[in-house]
Structure formats: C-alpha cells, structure tokens
C-alpha cells in the first residue's frame, strides 16, 4: 500500500518535471486500455490516438496547475480519455458525421462541446500562443524547448547552440518577448 502511494507520488512529480521516462511509461501503460475502450465504442485507430493525446495533455496540465496533487495518474488519465470520448459521441459533430465521412471530423473534437465563456477565452489564448510559437524562429523554438521543457541547464544549451552562456541567456529573454508580442498580435486580429 505504502509502495503504491510512493509510486503514485513519483509519477506526479515526474509529470511536473516533464520527465520523459515517467511520461512514456504512463503512455505505454494507459494507451492500450483507452484504445480498446474507443474501438469497442464505435471509434477507430486515429480517433483513439487523438482522444488519448488530448487527454494526456489535459492530465499533464492539471498536474502542473495543481488540480491533481496525488493519486493514481494512470487511472486519472484513463478517466479523462473516457470522458472525452463520451463527450465526443454526444457532440453534434459526431451525429452529423455518422452518415457521411467518418474520418474527417477529428479536427473539431477539441472545441466541442461549446464551453463556458471563460473556458473559451482560455482556449483562444492557448491557440493564439500555439500559433505564435509556430511563427517564432527555429532557433528560439529549440532554445525555449530545451530550457523550459527538457529542463537542461543554460551552460549545456549554450554549448549545443555554439554561443556564449550570456548570449544564450539574452536570447532566451528576447525569444519570450517576441513570443508574447506575436501572440498578442494574433489575439487582437481575431477579435
């Protein structure tokens, strides 16, 4: 009992730190179950993968935001995926597509069903930032990824990018400034 508890704590911590090994192990453990569930319930391979990955991101985000502090991450992830699939089956997009093309509707899953005002706002912010990120230069993107996601040290990163640590540090600052202004622009254009 104490052991499972410890293991659960380790997984939560691994997610918080973006630990690749922990996340991959969870992915490999939970995906087959989600896949079986979706295939049994009128879904196909592509849908299983999409729903599962959305659920994975949501699970990871909730851990980061402190909404999930301790407990069994795998069970939690499975529940999120299952609920997402239920939501999808109930959504109007699914009903619309039953008789037509059953492949092409996956892109809309995320925005459905119509969320509350504030959730919508949050979603818009998020998608503006993702667009901004895709417009950011390759250098910025990989620098930010190595530092924020992979959690590598500034020394290591500067070596890999072939620049002095101080200029890598400056560049990181400039990149975030640029990312912010780009996403503000994108958001303002949408309004």
């Amino acid at each position: 009992m104490g052991n499972t508890h410890q293991k659960a704590g380790k997984t939560v911590n691994g997610f918080r730190k973006n630990d690749s090994e922990t996340m991959q192990a969870t992915y490999q453990e939970v995906y087959p179950k989600v896949r079986t569930h979706i295939l049994k319930n009128n879904g196909n391979e592509d849908q299983a993968k999409d729903i599962f990955q959305e659920a994975f991101v949501a699970c990871w985000r909730n851990i980061k935001d402190g909404k999930f502090l301790e407990g069994n991450v795998s069970g939690y992830l499975f529940t999120i995926a299952k609920n997402k699939w239920t939501d999808f089956l109930r959504s109007s997009d699914y009903k619309k597509t039953i008789n037509t093309d059953s492949q092409s509707f996956l892109t809309v899953v995320q925005d459905d069903p119509i969320p509350k005002e504030d959730i919508l706002e949050e979603e818009q912010n998020r998608s503006a930032m993702q667009t901004a990120l895709s417009q950011l230069g390759e250098n910025c993107r990989s620098l930010l990824k190595m530092f924020y996601f992979e959690r590598r040290s500034m020394e290591e990163i500067s070596k890999e990018m072939g620049m002095a640590p101080s200029s890598a540090r400056n560049q990181k600052y400039r990149c975030m400034e640029k990312l912010r202004s780009l996403s503000l622009q994108i958001k303002n254009n949408e309004r």
Binding site: M23, Y27, F56, K64, F149
Partner: peptide, 21 residues
C-alpha cells in the same frame, strides 16, 4: 508569463507524445 511558459512546454509535449506513439 506562466501561460506563455506553459504554451512552450505544451508544444514540446505534443511533439514528445508523437514520438511515444
């Protein structure tokens, strides 16, 4: 800043999920 920071992490996570898959 937190939102920007998370968006960088999330984009990287999505790439990572593809490779897990």
């Amino acid at each position: 800043f937190k939102a920007l920071f998370h968006s960088v992490e999330e984009a990287a996570l999505r790439e990572e999920l593809e490779s897990f898959h």
